[in-house]
Design a protein around this nucleic acid. Structure first.
Lengths: 350, 350
DNA sequence: ATGAAAGCGCTAACAA
DNA sequence: TTGTTAGCGCTTTCAT
């Protein structure tokens, strides 16, 4: 098992009777190699257990490899701002490895914008791409194009089953709903629960939280079969309407103590929650946006479930980089992130 | 800010009128350099904003740098097994950077063993050391020796305030007790709490969980001032005695529903807990040992508070490596890890 | 105390 | 299609 001395391309060269140059060409699929030589080299690599030396490779390479990051625009105060927080650091981390990260942003409410961005991206011929696939159908088309171009890709946040992606990093949505219900009910007596949802006015894309809601419902059905689950819709752009909706609901159901939301927008409820404080109320929601964390710290929210979206970005890029540079495939294709339970007592150092 | 082209030692050489060799000597404090040259080089480095190229450095270096890892023996089923899980991977991660990790283990119950190991370690003159400082006084002595030898060191798990350590990674102990109390009481009605402690028979070292217990007590005093806090001691090597102690306690206090433990040994209670199941019972404890996780999965334990000790090891080594290779100091000296709340509903993928 | 020069393992441009 | 060669930026040995 243990190599005597590291096997280098030079060893392979002398073993196959070819030269460094040819070895390099087959290692990087640059073509210009006869089939016969190609196979000789490949088998020699296997036999001798050759592994490329990343340092030498990086040192010698002139141009950086480009990884394209295809995701929604970094809108302030949204989930995508969180996901992109620390991207600058990530870029700096990969730069010395001659890996450049190029952002390709699209409007998460406009499929057209997504497609436009995809075309731009394809023209740039990156060495790999990391995708947040908000639009299912369009993503399938795009992935086919990537396949044809021989460009590897990873998914983050959500994924499309059928494609031959290199890896996926994201939260287990169904389970997260289950966890949310458990944290909300907390083993106590619960007769009514209010779920607040957000109108998706601008676009037509499928609701990313359906599975989460399903998990939540299944938990409730199982453990609190007689609990009433109320739903109300708010508009993320209309604060007055949000307040009015909430006030109307609680006028009608003053005894409801449990509130949940399945997306990152719980901060929209903070004005209401702080206007009508209730020490017995329990609020559980998702994602550690700054606004949400502030409310958690303040005690307005009871529990936030976090998924470190910025780590998903990092992991996907890392995986892509290992594949591009070393041809290494990830240990697992589907990587479900741990769900972090955040309370006022462990929110620091997160 | 942005460099035109990367500054190399060659640039510094020509700028100072010296040669590559001399620059290298001052960069690595190898001596054999006149004070005058030394200062000329140092100021040039500052002025030109030189940053070493890790890849080139690693590629050219013959010998690996050695980082010593000084911690308790990896005893099966203990916290230290958890902390050392994945060390092989960590070693493999650092090997291509020509960083070798040497383990120096000591018996956590024997100060003599600790001191012996320290002497062995010192003789080997590693480039840096990562320390779990179980024995306070002995560690202080050891750190002085390291200071004299000019060997940098990090602490993990716990730390000694006064020393000039490079970094510390660990859990905020006091806060973890606070969190534990919050998870245990969960906002409900709590009149009695049982705290189970472990006799420290073999050694004399100070109890690492005092601060955690203090945090717990302060929480209870504040939020449940009239709650009775019971304590019982068990012996980690005597299962029968543990069972007897628990049975005796619950014979006397049959209505107690809340149990906490402040170390990683909650698995010792599992036989009792499973012999006398109680759906209303709430058990909160620390650390994701395999045995603990199994009990959590099974529902025997309600909540486990995790701190990723293996990540502490990794981070400390990473920090040490950056310092040795690049002279880079960590952003913060004291790094408190996030406390993870683990329940049966989020224990996967942890 | 300092300089010169030979690599480390790989890439890439050019020659054959 | 293949081989040759000059680096990449640094370390290290050997002269000076």
């Amino acid at each position: 098992m243990a190599q005597e001395r590291k096997v280098t391309i030079l060893d392979i060269a002398s073993y196959t009777g070819l030269s460094k140059g040819t070895i390099d060409r087959v290692l990087h699929n640059r073509g210009e190699v006869s089939k016969k030589s190609y196979e000789k080299v490949m088998s020699a690599i296997k036999e001798m257990g050759y592994e490329p030396d990343l340092n030498a490779s990086i040192l010698a390479r002139k141009e950086a490899e480009r990884i394209a990051l295809l995701m929604p625009e970094k809108e302030k105060g949204t989930f995508w701002e969180l996901a992109l927080s620390g991207l600058e650091e990530v870029k700096e981390h990969f730069l010395p490895m001659r890996i450049r990260i190029d952002q390709y942003s699209y409007d998460q409410y406009s499929e057209e914008s997504f497609c436009d961005t995809c075309s731009r991206l394809l023209e740039d011929k990156p060495a790999g791409v990391v995708i947040v696939p908000i639009f299912q159908a369009a993503t399938i088309t795009f992935c086919q194009e990537l396949n044809e171009a021989g460009i590897p890709y990873c998914f983050i946040d959500s994924k499309l089953d059928s494609e031959n992606y290199l890896a996926y990093f994201g939260m287990p949505m169904y389970k997260s709903g289950y966890l949310c219900a458990d944290q909300l009910t907390c083993g106590g007596k619960v007769d009514d629960v209010l779920i607040v949802r957000v109108h998706r006015d601008k676009g037509r894309q499928s609701d990313p939280t359906v599975n989460r809601r399903a998990g939540f419902m299944d938990y409730m059905l199982q453990k609190y079969p007689s609990c009433n689950i109320h739903s109300r819709f708010i508009d993320s752009t209309d604060k007055d309407m949000t307040m009015a909706t909430m006030e109307a609901f609680f006028r009608e159901h003053p005894s409801v103590k449990h509130i949940a939301m399945f997306n990152s927008r719980i901060h929209l409820l903070v004005p209401f929650l702080e206007k009508y404080p209730d020490p017995e109320r329990r609020v559980v929601a998702f994602d550690n946006l700054n606004a949400n964390m502030a409310a958690l710290r303040h005690g307005t929210i009871s529990v936030l479930i976090g998924q470190h979206p910025e780590k998903q970005v990092f992991n996907a890029i890392q995986t892509m980089s290992d594949f591009i540079l070393l041809g290494r495939r990830p240990q697992r294709t589907d990587n479900y992130m741990h769900m972090d339970i955040l309370t006022p007592f462990n929110l620091e150092n997160y």
